Structures are given as structure tokens and as C-alpha cells.
Amino acid sequence: MRSVILGIALMVTATGALAADRLVNVTKLEYGKQWAFTREEVTLQCRKGEALFVLNNSTLMQYPLNKVAEEQVKAGQQRAQPLKVILLDDANNPGQKMSVQPFVERATKLCSD
């Protein structure tokens, strides 16, 4: 019984921590040819200090979208994989990855909401 109560308490705490972050799901359908990710749907996050992350919804792994997020990862404040792991190759520019600028702009708006 104690383990059930402890589990519920941990879930409530974790849910509260997630609620502090601003999130939005985005899909390939919304962005069409601008879509930059290997997944059909991802979540954009604005975290403390305006650190922007993209979250792979199926694995829950996060990837930094801006310098603030990269610095938090380097400082050990966040755990994340390099963004290039989930970026598509740009068919129009061989050897380059797709631009994440539209997603950085959308995630930045979350910080001001």
C-alpha cells in the first residue's frame, strides 16, 4: 500500500514539473515540405531560461533547439541527444540537414505565452 501511495505522489510531482514547461505538439502535416524531423509528430518545449527543446514523442528523448538549451545540456542541467540525430537531410541541399528555424520560431512563441 505504501508503494502505491508513493507512486501516486511521484506522479503528481512529475506532472507538476511538466506543467511548468510550455509545450506544443507539431506534425508533418502542418509544415509540409518544411518538416525537418524523422518523426511524423514532435513536441516543442520552452523550458526555464527560454531553453528550447524538441521532444520525440515515442521515445521521450529531447534535443536542444537553441544555444541556451545546448548550454544547459553541457552544464548537466538537462539530458538530451544532439539535434542532428532526428533531423532529415535537405533534398535541395545535399550534405545539409533541414532548417529548424520554423520550429525555433514556434517554440520561442511558447516562451512569451
Rank of each mutant, 00 (worst) to 15 (best):
E41I: 11
N25E: 13
G76Y: 04
Q62G: 12
L6K: 10
F103Q: 00
L18G: 13
P82E: 09
P102N: 11
S3Y: 14
A51H: 14
M98C: 06
E41H: 07
S58M: 14
R39M: 12
V4R: 13
K33E: 11
K33G: 06
Q101T: 09
V68E: 15
G16I: 04
V73W: 04
R106K: 15
M61V: 13
L29S: 15
A17L: 15
K28N: 04
K97V: 01
A19S: 12
S99N: 01
A80H: 01
N57P: 01
E30W: 02
V68C: 06
N25D: 12
T13I: 15
V12E: 05
T59N: 01
I86D: 03
G16S: 08
N92L: 12
G49H: 12
E40Q: 15
V100L: 03
A80K: 07
A17T: 13
Q62A: 12
E41F: 01
D90S: 00
L87Y: 12
E70P: 01
V100A: 10
D21K: 14
L52S: 02
P82Y: 03
C111E: 06
Q81I: 06
A14Q: 08
E71M: 05
T43V: 00
E41D: 02
G95S: 02
M1N: 07
G16Q: 05
K84Q: 09
G95A: 02
W35N: 02
Y31R: 08
V12N: 03
T59Y: 01
E40S: 15
I5F: 12
R2Y: 11
K33V: 04
T38E: 00
L55N: 12
G7V: 05
A9M: 10
N25G: 06
R22E: 03
L88F: 05
R39T: 08
V73A: 07
I8S: 05
P102H: 11
T59H: 04
I86A: 03
G32L: 00
Q96S: 11
